[in-house]
Design a protein around this nucleic acid. Sequence first.
DNA 1: GGGCGCAGCCTTTTT
DNA 2: GGCTGCGCCC
Length: 777
Amino acid sequence: MSANYLDGLNERQREAVITLQGPVMIIAGAGSGKTKVLTTRIAHLMRNGVDAFNILSLTFTNKAAKEMKERVEKILGSNEARNLYIGTFHSVFARLLRSDAPKMGYPSDFTIYDADDAKSVVKTIINELNLDDKHYKPNLVYNRISAAKNSLIGPEAYQVDYYLQQEDQRASRPLTGKIYDLYVKRCYKNGAMDFDDLLFKMYQLLKGFPDVLAKYQHKFKYIMIDEYQDTNPAQYEIVKLLGAVHENICVVGDDAQSIYSFRGATIQNILQFEKDYDDVKVVKLEQNYRSTKSILGVANEVIAKNKGQIEKNLWTDNVEGDKIKLVRTNTDNEEGKSVADTIAELKLRNHFANRDFCILYRTNAQSRSFEESLRRQAIPYRIFGGLSFYQRKEIKDFIAYLRIISNSRDEEALKRIINYPVRGIGKTTLEKVAIIANDQNITFWEVLERASEFGFKGGTLEAIANFVIMIQSFRVMLDKHNAYEVAVQVGKSTGIVKELFNDKTTEGLARYENVQELLNSIKEFTETPTEDGELLDDKSLGIYLQQITLLTDADNTNDENSDVVKLMTIHASKGLEFPVVFNVGLEEGLFPSGLSINSREELEEERRLFYVAVTRAKSRLFITYANSRYRFGQLQQNEPSRFLEEIPEKYLDRSYAGGGLRNSGAMGGGASWGNMFDKRKAPGAAAGPSRPAQQEPRPRVISSPTAANHTPSANFTADDPATMEVGMDVEHQKFGFGKIIGLEGAPNNRIATVMFPKAGGEKKIMLNYAKLMIVRQ
DNA sequence: GGGCGCAGCCTTTTT
DNA sequence: GGCTGCGCCC
């Protein structure tokens, strides 16, 4: 234990740490040691006799939570910190809801629907209502529902809210409220909560059950909220309820870094905090330890353009540092090349490692040109964001099995896997199931269990019965086996693992490896003791599932072991820092986004986003933009971002990266720059060690050999499906020769499993469609 | 069932 | 430009 953990703090930080009682607001400028203050404060609470079980600390990302817990542990030199309630709003509430969800009619193993699941439910409902999906786009409707929930507006309130109704009328979606209502009911029936429900239901739980509220008010004597500027009304109300008795609420944030209003965050929460409680102690952390004077100077100049901020003056003792490099290129590809070239050069000259670099963009779609140029330079990189591991199809499929085992009401999971792998329960059957389920108001699973009552017959009934028995056998296993053992059995019994193993295509191999990785992660989960004091011995499937749904790709950003250049959106970079930062795509329409320039509020949020981007850099900052780039498959001319004009010239070192030419003039309305160099687009014209310009096409995944052209035998004629039997050698027009190793399905709709040694292994063939010729019986 | 081609969407950002 | 979902074929 380090006794003098207070020594390393500056005066302000110290003040923030030792003020333990009552409401405290810490305004923490970028790079001002916020995490240090938060963690030290928690440690200090515990040193002063506060039980870890009584401290609740809410963060925005899992990564931030993990880091905090580790740092508290380090200060304390003990594992007491494991008893702290530190986590994201979503994960902590999911945990609390586990014990109390049954009070509201949900199973304690309720499923958490991610955005994909939720949109799928919305889509189903739109279809069921026979609404035209030109107007009722699932995506937009879902966003609308999400926004309502984040403002604690339920379906009833929604449908009588004048302004909401007006908006929906104007958008030609008058029935959005109706969809919302049905959506909520459907999720309930499915025993599922979406991300927003974790907040909304938590709120309803506290509001509706005074004993529960009292329990948690008593439990959480000290509450700390990180990134308070990004909280939404639901989070705000919950915090207010939980803290109402002790009022030991410490919020930390920076209004200048509020960038999540699109998700319902209200910057007002932080601006108004002083009015919410009596005697709020406000501490401002204004010394920046991260960046050079130049970088911070730019940041301050930019953010000064925003109105209505909490007054502060961010300063640093650090060196002046280099000017900010502002690089213009002709195209997005050249932008990528310029960045990759610069990275290569800095590595060579200044001995930077790959991990010292980060490329920050406004939208995920911008990553492509950088990926290509980095690959060409053989610079290892990793993209954060985008599809997380758990969103891959093969992983979602596998997890769907675990979900339906854990929660039989989970209709979305059931739909995913009822016919994967193929078992003869097709679209028609599923439609019948859906109709019966809606009609009788029972779950899909119940319909399947009682399939014979509902008139399913023959092969279909048999297939359903087998499926039901299989899932039930997994459930029985749960009593005596942990999540990993059940998962392994699922892989075996369903044949998924074998099927993926037999697929020898490149993609198939990757899928197989991913599933293996999933199994490993489940194993790891069952073998690691939970940090969660109350659930120490429970390593059940339900907990595992709830946990992984709340995991993001960005949570792995701190993987210090891998020496790679990082690519991510600015949003994902919040809270991180890098020696060298490239802030790319500074163009009108892109950054600020064309969708966010219609009001002062929107534009100010874009500017805060730019502020966040600038303040990620420690020693070197590059800002780049291109005259033209491909968007939507079309070449688009762009003007330089208005934010560039807000940077005083003295901070900038301008250059043009197309041919090493210098542009000396000020930015006299970028339009004139447009065509100057257009004609010299030849690949070799670019600066740098131009290789003999063989612009190698991007390495592509080789397309699957299953498409390999087998030339059918001259005498090929299809044989009658009814005559096929297991063990026969057959020929397929495309896949070549193979052996039937399985037969299933109704007599009039037989499905053969055939092993094709030369075409990727086992395939399921529907004999009614694909023709097979018997070669040898 | 699944492969293929086409249409339409997407591009704001995520727990 | 890339991805998804859909309808059509075998």
